[in-house]
Simulated scan of single mutants.
Amino acid sequence: MKPNEPSMTALMSCFVRAYHTEHDTPVIFRDDMARQLITDEEYKQIQTFLANGLGFFPPERLDAFSSDEEKVKWIVQTQLAPTPLARAAYTERIVQHEKRLGATQYVMLGAGLDTFAFRHPHRGLTIFEVDHPNTQQFKRERLHMASWNMPSGLQLVAADFIKDDVAPRLLAAGFRPSEKTVFSLLGVSYYLEKEHFYRLLHQLAPLMTEGSSIVFDFADEQLFASPVKRVQNTLALARQSGEPMKAAYSLEELEKQLQHHRLFIFEHVSPEQIQAEFFSNRNDDLTAFEHVHYVHAVRK
């Protein structure tokens, strides 16, 4: 993240959710509110940027599309959308299930411009959105722009995952450690050094009572050496945007770190399983992203 600027990843993820809801069938993850958090000018600028940047992605396909609309759709479907869409669908399904089983709190770390609290104004579920102060201020401005009222059960908690201790900030915002909670950490593990990611897990663990759980996505140890073109593109785009990807993990090392905090993997979802679960019924270019996995770990 660049100093004094919101996360470009957050803005692009919001664009992807809006674009997918408007243009793709069937819908993997429906977010009818995301479009309201992006100005018309930004929406057009992102589309223009993608259409003009086609040569960066597949130079050999420059002549394969008859319009800018086709170019944008291809880039969004192949490059940008798969991971944000599938991980959101996976996580929100878990949150809804855990709420039925007694969870009373949902903590979203790296929430960005997520709209869950506005799409699902749950009674009995307090939602804490934790994010970098710059991104959170940007979100406040966008909520004001959209004329959305803050749900009574939503708390915004500003924290820098590298510099700050998240736990006391959550407690100050009214977090209740004795209550069953779902934590999500989506799109974060890639952008932190391993030591910072493990430090964040260390901060969160004492806040988890028995039965609480955490959901996160991660890239496996083959990421940085991957021969897959779109993976290479993603790494290059992240560097150019000022938010480089820094870490990849083996399942074994993650399992060891989690067990240290009495967190045990309840479910690990591989790229092949993600493909079967979320992308198998499609006739377009949306497919599960290589090397990206999901984990749902439960505190025992």
Rank of each mutant, 00 (worst) to 15 (best):
A89E: 07
S67D: 07
F56A: 05
M33T: 09
D31L: 11
R61S: 04
D63M: 06
P26H: 07
I94G: 08
S66A: 11
I75S: 06
Q45W: 06
R87G: 02
F57N: 03
L85V: 03
T25K: 14
Q79T: 03
A51E: 03
T21V: 09
K44W: 04
L62S: 04
Y90V: 02
L37I: 05
A86P: 01
D31P: 14
R93W: 05
F57A: 11
R93T: 14
T78V: 11
I28S: 05
G55E: 04
Q96T: 14
I28C: 08
L50I: 12
S67L: 09
F56G: 01
F29I: 08
V27K: 14
D32H: 14
W74D: 07
P58H: 06
I46A: 13
D40N: 15
Q77V: 01
G53Y: 00
T25M: 09
Q36F: 15
R61P: 00
V76Q: 01
H20T: 00
R30D: 11
G53H: 00
I94K: 15
R93A: 15
L54A: 05
L37T: 05
W74N: 03
E92R: 13
I75C: 09
S66K: 10
Q96H: 15
F56E: 03
V27T: 11
F49M: 14
N52V: 02
G55V: 05
L85F: 04
A86C: 10
D40Y: 10
L62K: 09
A89G: 07
P58Q: 08
P82A: 00
E70C: 07
A34F: 09
E42F: 05
H23K: 12
A51T: 03
Y43L: 09
A81S: 08
A86R: 08
Q45N: 14
L37S: 08
T83Q: 13
I46E: 12
I94Y: 12
V95I: 15
E70N: 07
T21G: 08
L54V: 02
R30A: 14
V76K: 01
D63L: 09
R35C: 12
F29D: 06
L50F: 06
Q77E: 10
K44V: 06
T78E: 06
Q96N: 15
I28P: 06
Y43C: 09
D68K: 15
I28N: 04
T83E: 11
T21K: 10
I46G: 13
P59L: 02
Q36V: 02
P59Q: 02
L37A: 11
D40W: 10
F56T: 04
F49R: 14
Q79Y: 11
T91L: 13
K73F: 01
F65Q: 03
Q79S: 08
T21A: 14
A51D: 02
L50W: 07
A88N: 10
A51F: 04
E69F: 00
Q45H: 12
T48G: 12
T83R: 12
L62A: 06
E70K: 13
R61I: 00
T25I: 05
T48F: 11
P82K: 01
T78D: 02
F57D: 02
H23W: 05
